[in-house]
């Protein structure tokens, strides 16, 4: 697991985003056991307190759950999982819009290009 963190966003938020991406893409499955905060800190080379913070936040967002003293697991809650996917899609679309807007391209033109290139990418 190698994540490139940027220096300006809080690391714990970047960790959560990293988890959401993995959930959305399916590399983390619902109910899958996740590493302890110590292991995570070690794998991502981040401060253990930050890992702890990320887990706490994810628990509050119900992305993960912990039963008694067992290791934490990815949520099985369909609604949450759906929301994660939607959130990521929206975020991607948002950033896409922002960059497209900045070069003043009309929507139709962009959408055609998107379709064309998206399929090309998939073929590769």
């Amino acid at each position: 697991m190698n994540v490139n963190f940027n220096n300006r966003d809080p690391v714990y938020i970047q960790v959560i985003r990293h988890f959401k991406e993995q959930i959305a893409t399916g590399s983390l499955e619902p109910g899958e056991e996740i590493s302890s905060r110590r292991e995570l800190a070690n794998k991502l080379k981040i401060n253990p307190n930050t890992a702890q913070r990320a887990y706490k936040e994810m628990e509050e967002q119900r992305l993960i759950y912990t039963e008694r003293n067992l290791p934490s697991r990815i949520t099985k809650d369909e609604q949450v999982l759906k929301a994660v996917r939607e959130e990521l899609i929206l975020q991607a679309v948002d950033s896409f819009i922002t960059s497209v807007r900045s070069i003043n391209v009309p929507l139709e033109e962009v959408l055609d290009l998107v379709k064309e290139n998206y399929e090309k990418h998939c073929d590769e």
Binding site: N6, N7, R8, D9, P10, V11, Y12, I13, R53
Partner: peptide, 14 residues
């Protein structure tokens, strides 16, 4: 460091 990133969007180097 996390607070300054969260509240001001700045890196330590900033």
């Amino acid at each position: 460091t996390e607070e300054i990133r969260e509240n001001e969007g700045k890196s330590v180097i900033d």
